[in-house]
């Protein structure tokens, strides 16, 4: 029998999001935690829509997704640019978590930790780059954050958030030259740490 249409699920009011962003800009960590799932959800939905709408040869850019998510969630005229920067920051963090969780889940299944019936075929590429170990990168980034939090944030925004040097500078409120400096040093440091980790692993196996 026909029935009345079901109402569309409510999206969080942009006012609430704006309030949360304000809290983030004031350094409130729990606001980040509240914001993350919303951003997660939105990014995911947008990615799905892109899959349906985009032509297959289109490569998806993280920044384009974040821009669109922001536009959808928050009225850009009602908030200060500073808020937009914080939104980008949260989005980069969301992307990082997604990638790391995903890489970890893949690793678990590969090592046979999952159920016997679940077979992960070697079908599609799911890594960020051909050889990059996202979990190791994440660990190394945590190490970097202990000595230089800003440099670690630069890597997060540039690599996970897909932002340019200038955008990164905006988000962190520092000069582009500083971003470039941090970026250069951080990459050398991270590469060294990851390679060190690989050697340990090889040593351990022999």
């Amino acid at each position: 029998m026909p029935s009345s249409p079901t109402p569309a699920p409510a999206t969080p009011p942009s006012l609430e999001l704006t309030r949360l962003l304000d809290a983030v800009s004031e350094g409130n960590r729990s606001a980040v935690d509240q914001l993350l799932p919303v951003v997660y959800h939105e990014l995911r939905g947008l990615a799905q829509r892109r899959l349906a709408a985009e032509r297959a040869d289109h490569t998806l850019q993280a920044t384009a997704l974040v821009h669109e998510a922001y536009m959808k969630l928050i009225d850009q005229r009602e908030v200060r640019w500073q808020n937009r920067a914080h939104f980008f920051g949260v989005a980069a963090l969301a992307m990082r978590r997604i990638l790391v969780n995903h890489a970890k889940a893949k690793g678990r299944i590969k090592r046979g930790g999952g159920g016997a019936k679940v077979e992960l075929t070697d079908g599609a590429a799911v890594t960020a780059g051909p050889d990059l170990d996202i979990v190791a990168l994440d660990e190394a980034l945590k190490g970097l954050a202990l000595v230089d939090e800003r440099a670690a944030r630069v890597v997060e925004l540039r690599f996970f958030g897909g932002m340019s040097v200038e955008e990164t500078a905006e988000v962190l409120g520092i000069a582009p030259a500083t971003v470039k400096r941090d970026w250069t040093l951080a990459r050398a440091w991270l590469l060294r740490e990851i390679q060190k980790g690989d050697e340990h692993e090889r040593d351990g196996e022999t």
Partner: peptide, 13 residues
């Protein structure tokens, strides 16, 4: 190293 931003597409999906 890390010059190309992470491909977030597949993990997001």
């Amino acid at each position: 190293f890390l010059e190309n931003p992470a491909d977030v597409f597949s993990p997001l999906l």
